[in-house]
Computed example of a mutant assay.
Amino acid sequence: MGRVVFLLLPQLHLLDLAGPAQVFSAAADSGLDYRQSFVAESSEVVTAQGLPVRADVDWPDLDPADLVVVPGWRSPASRAEPAQPATLRRLVAHHAAGGTVVSVCGGAYLLGRAGLLAGRRCTTHHELQDELARRYPAATVLNDRLYVVDDRVATSAGIASGIDLALHLMAVRHGPALAARIAREMVVYARRNGHERQDSAMLRYRSHLSDVVHRVQDVIDERFTEALPLVELAGVARVSERTLTRLFDASTGLTPLRYQQLLRVERAEHLIGHGVAVEAAARAVGFTDARMLRRLRARARSTHSVG
């Protein structure tokens, strides 16, 4: 699965680090081979909350499957350089080799200094967005996102949104069922920034308190590539088909079938983005051919352009 390397800068925010680290730790506890490393330019880093943390000064060898995560730090918009040029070159080299670079909150400023935001969409904390856009005009800073992923550069908004981004990365890499289990374990179904968009269907439609609907979503998350008749899902929930449809709509605004279709399209988009042909991606997520996938992708694009 790969290594997750956290780059720790002086005055880093603890939750920027701890939130995503908890997600990847939970993934490792689930049996995935995620190994976490913590690197810095000095062996001890004092956080913005006053707690000193230890780090390695030597970077591990990185593969394209690895993630490099840059947590935010206090006053990232200052003109002081938080990292040496050699550190910035490491970020650039990892991305150029096919790796993914992630920022939490103000960590986007370091990605901007490394040149990784040029020509890409990104986001950061709402109090930092305007300055990020002024400082890096070649970037497209989006003000209405919890996180943005663009060409293996992933940026997230305010401090706790690093959890949402890490769960999204889990969902696209390993499927929504694993991400849902981790989210449930961490008790983070509710979106902390409810007015902002979020690109993961698994998370977007889990911000409710219906145990019946959660149980059905668990089944759909686990088996979204299969045909799942409504009668079977109603049996899992131990309610009638009519009651399940009513509860599902009240909790998510969707039918069970529409929720399943969104999961399929998300997974297909991930496969297509990694070079899989549309026909093959359609079959891999459970469609008999690519016609339905093309219609659903077109509908999603139309919805996003309107919204």
Rank of each mutant, 00 (worst) to 15 (best):
R291F: 13
A180K: 03
Q129F: 07
H304C: 12
A183H: 04
G162S: 04
L254Y: 06
E185M: 03
E241G: 13
H274F: 08
M1F: 14
Y34H: 12
V239T: 08
S161W: 02
S161F: 02
V39S: 06
T124H: 07
R191H: 14
W59I: 00
V70L: 09
P176V: 00
A179K: 02
R134I: 06
A160C: 05
L91T: 11
A83Q: 08
A26T: 00
R120W: 01
D211G: 07
V216W: 00
G175H: 11
Y259G: 04
L230D: 10
L67C: 14
H214M: 01
T252C: 09
V219F: 07
D63E: 15
W59C: 02
E241L: 07
M202L: 09
M202F: 08
E226L: 12
V104C: 10
V239G: 00
L230H: 08
S200R: 03
S210V: 00
F6I: 08
L228K: 06
P82V: 11
E266P: 08
L17V: 02
S30F: 13
P229N: 06
R74W: 12
V149Q: 10
D249S: 15
P229A: 01
M292S: 13
A183E: 03
R134E: 06
S42D: 15
L233A: 00
S210Q: 02
D211S: 06
W73G: 09
G98A: 03
D130T: 11
G273W: 02
R191S: 13
D16V: 02
A237D: 00
L51F: 11
T123N: 09
L91W: 11
R223H: 04
A157Q: 01
S30Q: 13
F6W: 10
T87L: 12
R242F: 13
V212R: 15
A97M: 15
